[in-house]
Design a protein around this nucleic acid. Structure first.
Lengths: 155, 155
DNA sequence: CAAGATTGATAAATCAATCTTT
DNA sequence: AAAGATTGATTTATCAATCTTG
């Protein structure tokens, strides 16, 4: 009752596919570790950090919902709910645009700046420990080069 | 009422952090596209594909729950529920281990092999289009090298 | 009690539909 | 009607607690 050992194409043994799998593994592990550390050390989900940081770097510390959604790699509805939660915690507030009443800005509050300031060093040291410090400068540059091919230069 | 423009440390402007962000962007985009294409073309979630492929490559086309969870980068409970759904669709079945009654094997069914066969070429061509074909051989090797530093060699 | 797996409660993401303003 | 944003229904993931076997 043994089934054929040639159930799947040889293609699948190609070493190049292993690169894709390693990419997934690296992403899953590092993200999980960074998320856990941030949650443990400053009690903040990684998704919140992402939002707060994007706002902190933006002019006037505010962004339209659609732009923020793109920046944090989330759907519009996903971002809308994420902002709900962060707003409930007082770290951002919504402001209607005065030029175009359809638009909403999410604005970083003083409390948001405060909490972000506490989170930044923790997250940075995590990115260093799990990502940057694992790669010497040549490898990091090579990685950047490859990633730029994958995302396009302007991102 | 202007706030300080020096709210956050200069560290954040380091180009090396941009590499991490690009990594996230590349992962999010490519995963999303691969998932959509697989769902559209063969009506199968990427998570199912992952499970079926791991089983197809395993000896006797079966794996213990814990090993399968590790292989597809999911928590134990997450996998348990994922297997529930795939089993309900008839693509895998559970088999209790005879040596150790605590263990459960997930086994690929004939229908599972069939559905996987249809999915493989679609997914492979997606990985080529969105990932492999964007990188020449040198870049792919360099990427592999960097990822190996991040995950350890044996994964 | 520890290991393997599952289940309950909960959190968070998505698509499609909706509401408001242009 | 289209753009910007939100909401409803659904899906899927997680942690903590539980159940079963070693």
């Amino acid at each position: 009752v043994e089934q054929s050992s040639r159930a799947l194409p040889v293609d699948l043994r190609d070493w190049r596919l292993g690169v894709w799998r390693r990419f997934l593994t690296a992403h899953a592990r590092i993200s999980r570790d960074l998320g856990r550390e941030l949650e443990h050390d400053v009690g903040m989900p990684l998704a919140w950090y992402d939002v707060l940081l994007q706002l902190a770097e933006a002019p006037e510390r505010r962004l339209r919902m659609a732009d923020l959604a793109d920046a944090v790699l989330l759907s519009r509805s996903g971002l809308s709910r994420l902002v709900d939660r962060i707003q409930r915690a007082g770290l951002v507030r919504r402001e209607r645009s005065e030029e175009d009443l359809r638009s909403t800005f999410t604005v970083l509050t003083a409390e948001g700046v405060h909490r972000l300031r506490a989170a930044v060093p923790v997250h940075l040291s995590g990115v260093r420990a799990h990502f940057l410090d694992q790669l010497d400068d040549d490898r990091l540059r090579a990685l950047d080069d490859a990633l730029t091919c994958l995302t396009g230069p302007a991102e």
